[in-house]
C-alpha cells in the first residue's frame, strides 16, 4: 500500500514568516526520496507538511495542495489525525514512549487509540512490525522490557516498527540517523532500503553519502540568506544530482563547496 504524493505550489508559513516558498514536486511510490540542503532551508518544515505535523506548532500554516494518490490533504474537512495514520513519521532523536515496554511501544498506535485487538493478532502485529524493522531477533526475548533500555540505533528501529505497525502508506523520516553511530546508521539504512518495497519513503538527511546510498531520487533545497524562504532548487534521480547536476548551487553543495 504505497501511495504517490503530488505537491502543488506549496508555501509554508510560521506566522508572518514564509519558511518554504512555492514547492511543486511528485514523490514516487515504492521509492526512497531524499531531501538534502543546508540547515535552515526548510527541509524539516516541508517534510512535516506532508502529514500535517506542522499544525502542532502554533501559527504554522500552508497554502497550496498536497495530493496523496489524488486526494488533497488540505481539502476542507480533512481530518489531520487520519492523515497522520496514513503518513507516518520518524524523528531525528529516537523517542520511544518511556512508560511502555518494547511490545507496547510497537502497539502504541493501536493501544493509544483504544482499538480492541485480540491477543494473537497483537502478537502477530508486534512480530511482523519488528521483523520489518530488522529488530525482531535482537528484542524477541525482552519484549516486556522498557524500550528505553535499548541502544540508540535499536530505539530508532523500534520507532520505525511503531510507525509500521499502524500500516501507513508513506513513511517520513527527519534525519533518522543523525543521532546514531555508524553501525546503527548502517542498520537503519539497510532497513530503509527494504522498506521501499512496500512504502513510499521520504528521508531528510544532511549526509550526502547517505542520500547517495539509500535514495532513488533526491531533492536539493536551498536558501538565499537568513530570513529568506527555502526553495526547491533541483529534483532529479539521485545519480543525476550527484554526477551531473543541472544547477550551479547543487553542484557546489554536493561537491562540498558550501553547506
Amino acid at each position: 500500500m504505497s501511495k504517490r504524493i503530488d505537491v502543488e505550489h506549496l508555501k509554508v508559513y510560521y506566522g508572518d514568516f514564509l519558511a518554504v516558498d512555492d514547492i511543486t514536486m511528485q514523490i514516487e511510490p515504492r521509492a526512497v526520496t531524499a531531501f538534502i540542503g543546508p540547515s535552515g532551508c526548510g527541509k524539516s518544515t516541508f517534510l512535516r507538511t506532508l502529514n500535517r505535523m506542522h499544525e502542532v506548532i502554533p501559527g504554522a500554516y500552508v497554502e497550496g495542495k498536497v495530493n496523496l494518490d489524488g486526494e488533497n490533504l488540505y481539502a476542507k474537512g480533512v481530518d489531520p489525525v487520519r492523515v497522520r495514520s496514513q503518513v507516518g513519521m520518524v524523528f531525528q532523536r529516537p523517542n520511544p514512549f518511556p512508560t511502555m515496554s518494547i511490545r507496547d511501544n510497537v502497539l502504541a498506535g493501536v493501544k493509544l487509540n483504544s482499538r480492541r485487538i485480540a491477543r494473537s493478532d497483537a502478537d502477530e502485529l508486534v512480530e511482523s512490525s519488528l521483523r520489518s524493522a530488522n529488530l525482531w531477533n535482537e528484542v524477541k526475548d525482552r519484549l516486556d522490557k522498557p524500550g528505553s533500555g535499548l541502544s540508540g540505533g535499536q530505539q530508532q528501529r523500534l520507532c520505525i516498527a511503531r510507525s509500521i505497525a499502524v500500516r501507513p502508506d508513506v513513511i517520513l523520516m527527519d534525519e533518522p540517523c543523525s543521532a546514531l553511530d555508524p553501525i546503527s546508521t548502517l542498520a537503519v539504512e539497510d532497513l530503509i532500503n527494504e522498506l521501499k518495497a512496500e512504502y513510499t519513503v521520504v528521508i531528510v538527511t544532511h549526509n550526502m553519502q547517505q542520500a547517495a546510498r539509500v535514495s532513488d531520487k533526491t531533492a536539493f533545497f536551498n536558501i538565499a540568506g537568513t530570513g529568506k524562504p527555502g526553495r526547491l532548487i533541483e529534483y532529479a534521480p539521485t545519480q543525476e544530482i550527484f554526477n551531473k547536476p543541472q544547477e550551479k548551487a547543487t553542484e557546489d553543495y554536493v561537491s562540498g563547496r558550501f553547506g
Partner: peptide
C-alpha cells in the same frame, strides 16, 4: 518532552488521547 507528544500525533492519535495516555 515535546518529542513524545509528536511521536503520538505521528501515529494518528488524537490530542486528548495523547494527553490522557502519554
Amino acid at each position: 518532552p515535546n518529542e513524545l507528544r509528536e511521536a503520538s500525533y505521528a501515529l494518528g492519535v488524537r490530542k486528548w488521547r495523547t494527553i490522557t495516555k502519554v
